[in-house]
Write a protein that binds this DNA or RNA. Structure first.
Lengths: 272, 272
DNA sequence: ACTTGACTCTCCCGTTGCTGGAGGGTTTAG
DNA sequence: CTAAACCCTCCAGCAACGGGAGAGTCAAGT
């Protein structure tokens, strides 16, 4: 065991790069044991190796240099740095939470986009019967124009955004099309029961329904409605309210996209 | 709706700071609709608002400016950026994984330190009987000097470090103290069954045992051993091998600390 | 003693996504 | 006509280094 290491040797021993060692010297957290006055050469003794290890371990836990300086200044025992450790833990946990939220959004977008792509390719745009699962939703009941639903989705996104678990949908409580005084409720499926002002959270019942996927802009929805209603009539099915529209692919979370590729699933619950 | 916004107005509308808008201009991802040749004043039209929103959403998902530039260059629909979305998701998931590992380490250190502190304060250093739970451990069986166990712990830390779930311990297979040819096994409790070369992973049995917490440096352990063995003798208990030492508080993950405060729990399994 | 090659020094720039400020020109309201 | 509000460009700085230039230093071989 030597007891005086040049910076290069010390770098070998500790695994810290020469640049990093100089940087730590400048920051004052790992000062060489001696510095040659004439040449400026740094020399480290064996005692510094342990200190270097301490710094590395703290850095591995993403401690900031500034915090490391504080820790090294105050503490010689882990008991002394409990406060710092807990703070660091909180910082990291918060970042994990944020990252997880983003990942969930991304997963959602990706999944939506993939199913949309599949439907576009397979292209079965015919009236079918389906059984829906019950699902937890958060909705805002509205009366007025359909065009106001954009704002409602915006508000929902802000209040329950973190808990969205599926595609946006809208419930229609009128049995017919209404221009100015429609009765409807934009909703998001959510994965957690939460309370928010002005937002109704509850479980939508499942059950049989008639569905049709509409491809194209929303102002063309009428055609798909008449198609599915005709079919319901032919099958002598009684439709119960509210009916639903599921926005399989619409103006996305990032881009508006091309309305010609919008996909909207019309769901008419079958009575009895 | 105006259709020409000065940078300040556009900042109000979009929520992006003036500085940020200039920066985005420089980076080419959000270029003003027109720039006054004489004065250099930037002007944005309404169409840029949507683009600004897109950029904001991507930034919220921690996309790099460079990636945003690529996305904006290539895509107008979310379907086009699936590749980028997935890449970003992977990046974030990896960061989450790393952060979680750190948080686990921190939690471990904090918990160890807190129990140690409690024991130091309460100070019950007497022989007691306890029932141990079975636990999953990873160990390295060794023959030789006790002092070599440090290296074994180092190796264990590297191979199973991510899965450590409790305090380091050591198993002793000799019924007596041996200088040079001791038979022992440094271990870490782990929370997941894993395979690693040279490492034995298995479940240690639980059961009754006699315990004594030793406070102080390791070279003083002999005194505590004689105390606990005397007690075992008096109670006419038969001890089975291997015996254990649990390093409640020793040279920490960060600092060596003061050996006077080291805490080591001696555990002697009771036969039958 | 001299050269060569490895080592070291300081200083500066670049990274990412901005924020803040200095120093100067422009516009608009009173 | 002036003051406030707005805009411009350029520079610095943040965190934790890495890369490289240009110059000095050290140890070994000749």
């Amino acid at each position: 065991m030597k007891n005086s290491y040049s910076i290069g040797e010390f770098s070998q021993v500790t695994g810290l790069s020469v640049k990093t060692l100089r940087f730590y010297h400048e920051k004052g957290i790992l000062v060489p044991s001696s510095v040659d006055e004439a040449t400026g050469y740094r020399f480290y003794d064996a005692g510094k190796i342990e200190k270097a290890r301490v710094i590395m371990r703290l850095r591995q836990m993403e401690f900031a240099i500034e915090d490391i300086a504080a820790v090294l200044g105050e503490c010689t025992d882990e008991a002394d740095i409990l406060h710092y450790l807990e703070r660091q833990k909180n910082v990291l946990q918060q970042r994990i939470q944020e990252d997880r939220d983003i990942v969930r959004s991304l997963t959602e977008i990706i999944a939506t986009e993939k199913t949309a792509r599949q439907i576009l390719e397979e292209g079965h745009y015919s009236v079918e019967e389906k059984t829906l699962e019950p699902m937890l939703v958060a909705g805002i009941r509205m009366k007025g124009k359909y065009s106001d639903c954009g704002r409602a989705f915006g508000q929902l996104g802000k209040t329950v955004g973190r808990y969205i678990s599926g595609k946006a949908l809208c419930l229609y409580y009128d049995g017919e099309y209404r221009e100015d005084d429609a009765n409807f409720e934009p909703c998001f499926p959510i994965r957690k029961e939460i309370a928010a002002e002005g937002v109704s959270v509850r479980t939508l019942p499942g059950g049989r329904c008639l569905t049709l996927i509409h491809r194209g802009a929303y102002d063309q929805l009428g055609r798909s409605y008449s198609k599915i209603l005709r079919q319901a009539d032919e099958l002598k099915l009684k439709i119960s309210l509210p009916t639903r529209e599921v926005y399989v692919k619409g103006p996305g979370m990032i881009f508006k996209g091309n309305p010609k590729n919008y996909l909207t699933e019309i769901q008419l619950p079958i009575d009895g």
